[in-house]
Amino acid sequence: MNSTPLWLSSLTLAAAGGWLAATMFAAPATSKEPRFPQLTMDQLDARQKPLGEQIMKVSSVGIGGPYNPMIRSPVLGQRLFDLFYYLRWETSVPTKLNEFAILIIGRQWRSQVEWFAHAPLAAKAGLSADIIAELKTNKRPSKMAEDEAVVYDFVTELTTTRKVSDETYARAKKVFNDQQIVDLTAVAGNYVMVAMLLAMAEETVPPDKQEPFKPGEP
């Protein structure tokens, strides 16, 4: 794969943190058996291990989160990983806006793992604490820059109405080029799929961490 300075500089840290997280992610703390018991690197077979090694180099959750069910289907898992890699580290969409789009999907799905993993990344990329906090309460953030408002309205309209109006598309064209519009659409759709994998597998945050969304919250 084509390495880039954006992720290479944090490669060692991500791998170390990911290794720890891989042992921490587990099913909810109930008597119910996990649908997909958390795998460790030592448990991976010959088909899974090459993918596991790639995941460990870049993932903040190790082979936890969506990777835990995904690695059960290693051929599909590899192809999804390649897609994730592009949409996270090689996309044409600026990192702050890309992470914002992921958070929008995570909030729509109330995806505990997506929000837990990506809210800090969005903040690190420059998305304001106020925007993150308002989005977390299921509100349209009130103080967005033009490009942020375009991302919010474009992604929300597409995922909730299943179309993009001419007005919203025209706004997007003023901010993004064609490749960026395609990449923005793809990252939103990709993280719907990730949210589905997480929901199906009942993956959650590490047992010593608080879930971002509490029962009874909208």
Results as ranks from 00 to 15, higher is better:
8 L>C: 05
10 S>H: 10
11 L>K: 15
13 L>C: 03
19 W>F: 08
20 L>Y: 13
20 L>K: 11
28 P>Y: 08
32 K>P: 00
42 D>R: 13
48 Q>I: 10
55 I>M: 07
61 V>F: 13
61 V>C: 12
61 V>Y: 13
64 G>H: 10
65 G>I: 09
66 P>I: 10
73 S>D: 03
74 P>M: 11
74 P>W: 12
75 V>D: 09
81 F>Y: 15
90 E>R: 14
90 E>W: 01
94 P>W: 06
94 P>Q: 07
101 A>S: 15
101 A>F: 06
104 I>C: 11
105 I>S: 08
112 Q>V: 03
114 E>C: 03
115 W>A: 04
119 A>H: 05
120 P>Q: 10
121 L>E: 10
123 A>T: 01
125 A>S: 12
131 I>T: 14
132 I>K: 04
133 A>Q: 12
135 L>V: 00
136 K>I: 00
139 K>Q: 14
142 S>E: 12
144 M>S: 07
146 E>W: 03
152 Y>E: 07
157 E>R: 00
157 E>C: 03
159 T>E: 07
160 T>D: 05
169 Y>M: 13
171 R>Q: 14
173 K>A: 15
173 K>S: 12
175 V>I: 14
179 Q>P: 02
180 Q>T: 01
181 I>V: 03
188 A>D: 13
193 M>A: 15
194 V>Y: 03
199 A>I: 02
203 E>H: 08
208 D>V: 06
212 P>F: 12
213 F>M: 02
214 K>Q: 14
214 K>W: 03
214 K>Y: 04
214 K>L: 04
215 P>G: 09
217 E>T: 15
